[in-house]
Each structure stands twice: as C-alpha cells, then as structure tokens.
Nucleic acid binder design. Structure first.
Lengths: 199, 199
DNA sequence: TTACAAACCAAGCGCTTGCTTGGTAGCGTA
DNA sequence: TACGCTACCAAGCAAGCGCTTGGTTTGTAA
C-alpha cells in the first residue's frame, strides 16, 4: 500500500524514503497530527525502528526543514549566477521560489512555513541562520533592481511582500490550471516593477 | 496569573473570555499543542468546566473562527460603503484586512489562517461559505478598479496576491516599528495600481 | 424563604502518544 | 566459521490527552 515517491531532494536510502514520507504526511496532516506510527506505516517499517535513524520525531522535522532550506538556497544561487541584468535576476529568483513552494519541493517547503513552531528552540535558531543566507540573495538582487531604477520601494519591505505572495501560492495555485509557474512569476514580477506598457 | 484581555470582538461573558483566551493560546502554541487544561487555567476554571460551554475542543476553534470571519466581513463592508472611487475602496479594503491580521483581531485571524485543517470537515464547509461572502466584496472592488483603468491584471489573481501579502504580514509586521498599518497599506496598494510619479 | 437553572469543581476513565527495550535477520569481512 | 555492524521487529511502558461523571456553589426571581 505504501509506495513512497522520492521527492524533496532526498535520496532513496531508507533514511531518505523516511524523510520523504514524513514531509508528505507533515504537510497533509500537520506535524502534531502525524504520529510516528503513520510515518512508519508509510515507510514500511515498525514505529520503533524509526528511532534507529532519528533520535526523536522532532529530529525528523528538523532534518526535513534543513534539507529543503539547503536545497533551495542552492537553487536560488544558481538562478542569479551569471545573470547580469538585475530584473532578469529578480525574475529568476521569483521563478525559483515558486518552484520550491508549488513545484518539486512543495511538501517540505509547506512544512517549513507552517510547522515552524513545532521545532525546538535551539533548532529554530539553526534553521534561522540557514534562512539568513537565503534571504541575503534576495536582498542583494532587490537592491540592484532599485539602484538600476527598476523600482522605488524599500527592498526589505518588497522582499516581505514577495515572500507573502509566493508562500500563499501553496494555498491556491494549481499546476494543472490555466496559469503555469512562469506565468505566475510574471504576475508577481509586475507587482514589483510595474506592468509593461499596453500592447 | 491569568488576566484575560478581551479582544477579537468577543464580549466579557465567561464564554467570551474563554474564546478570547483560546484564540490567544491557539495562536501562540497552535491548536494541537494547546490543551483544554491550558485554556481552563487561562480562563480561571477547571478543565472539565469548559464542556459546559462548548461541546468539544474543536467546537471552541470553530466558534473562534466563525466569530472573526463575521466580525471582519462587517468591517470590510463598512470600508467600502459610501465610497465611490474604486481605488479609494481598494485602499479601504487593504487597510481593513491589515487591521484584522495585525491589529485588534490578530490572534483569531492568525488562527483562522494557520489552524484551518484542525477543523472538522463539516465545519470547514461552513467556514468556507462564510469566507465566500468576504471574498465577494474584494472581487467586486477589484473588478471596479480594473474597469476604471486602475490596473490591467486579472482580479482573481490580484486578490490572491494581495491575500498573500496581507496574511504574511502576521509573520513580520511590528506595529511599534517605523512602518504603521496605513503605511504598509499604501505599499501594498502600489503593488496593485503602481507607484505614483516621482516627487 | 424557597425554587431552579446556570456555572462550576474534583476526580478520574479510556485511549493515544512518543519512545524504550531486548532480541534477531542479513550481509560483508577475515 | 566466526565476527561485527546495520537495520529491523515485537512488545509494551509512562505520560498526557479529551472528555465524562456526580455533586456543589452561585445568582436570580417569585
């Protein structure tokens, strides 16, 4: 009954399958409503065997979050590398973040956003530090866009507004719908640099 | 130890105090991590006494959510009533929604956004129906803005993007910071109708 | 003063939870 | 063959959970 698809940037080791199943369940039911017995059943092992791989249920959550942060930070970096035009950089960042949130790492990313407070305090600190690297990339590009005259608003505020638009997409965006990820990215880009002149 | 401030549009009856305390706890710890004993302690009663007022813990959550939806739908309606200019209407809506999310009903609104899946299926339906009335107001105004030439994008998409920007504000906006609610509202408005010409 | 309902208390039941424990199967190496 | 390591199972414990129960206090009105 359990056919654990491997996604979210995890490998196909027992540990990786376990993380992938956990991410899916955490997203669908939430961390607290997912039991270790659920995760075990989905992975095809006994619940006690989980603790051979992880020290606690919370440790599983923490690992899922750290993996997805690192994976998507790398993706963000790739999106700006070698791109000179600030606006093109920004378009790349928006696409990359949307890909994270509604694309291939959707499960783990949603967990990252919604189950934050289920992390132990010390783990929150570690995740926050990893998150800071991610945000640095965004702010550098947004400053470049403003310096080039592409927008006039405060980059910090704009980043927060973009973050809201992309995160919220997990609640409504349908990849099978009429609007694809690039189309949505363009819509969000227009909220930042304005709409192009009429056709 | 327990001094239950009354907020979120609840009255000061035992029932209202209970709802207000529950909203605060649900926001701070999440629904699943809040025990009926926590709510009882905060309200100043025994945990069993909760069930004199509500049939279940989930019933408390549902009541909190329905109250805040109705309260803020009324606020939204007031914001557009008697206002002719579509852009002025839109500004009023953005301000009203921000007031809901980071202002006086912040606790209950955050719960509405983040604890949705903790509702029983039948209660989700009811809340969804109430939510539809709320969204109707937004879409009417956004269509008016577009018809008046204030923007060119699809009102449905724009509403979703605005919803993301306002909801996400609960994660970072500080009322004591340099930016006040009206200032943030103006920033969001500019994401929709563009920035005004340079000074 | 009596009557009655709403509001509450004290105790605890039954169940689920995360996690532990002691033991075993399979496999590569010497 | 013997060793040792990783991965796993079967069973169950202690704690915490939502909720129930039977009885008591409190406020209000005739």
């Amino acid at each position: 009954m359990a056919q654990p698809q491997i996604v979210n940037g995890m490998d196909d080791s027992p540990r990786g399958k376990l993380l992938s199943a956990a991410a899916r369940l955490f997203r669908a039911r939430g961390f607290d409503r997912t039991t270790v017995r659920d995760i075990a059943r989905e992975t095809g092992i006994q619940s006690g065997s989980l603790f051979h791989h992880f020290s606690s249920k919370e440790d599983i959550l923490f690992t899922v979050m750290m993996e997805v942060i690192r994976f998507n930070t790398a993706r963000l970096q790739e999106a700006v590398q070698g791109v000179a035009d600030p606006v093109a950089q920004l378009r790349g960042l928006i696409r990359a973040e949307l890909q994270s949130i509604v694309g291939d790492t959707a499960e783990a990313m949603t967990v990252l956003v919604y189950e934050w407070r289920c992390l132990a305090a010390e783990h929150q600190e570690q995740a926050l530090a990893a998150r800071a690297v991610y945000e640095r990339i965004w702010l550098d590009t947004l400053h470049a866009v403003r310096d080039a005259g592409g927008m006039r608003a405060d980059p910090v505020i704009v980043r927060r507004l973009i973050n809201g638009m992309t995160s919220w997409a997990s609640n409504w965006f349908d990849p099978a719908g009429p609007l694809d990820i690039d189309g949505l990215a363009e819509q969000i880009l227009h909220r930042v640099i304005g709409e192009p002149a009429s056709p």
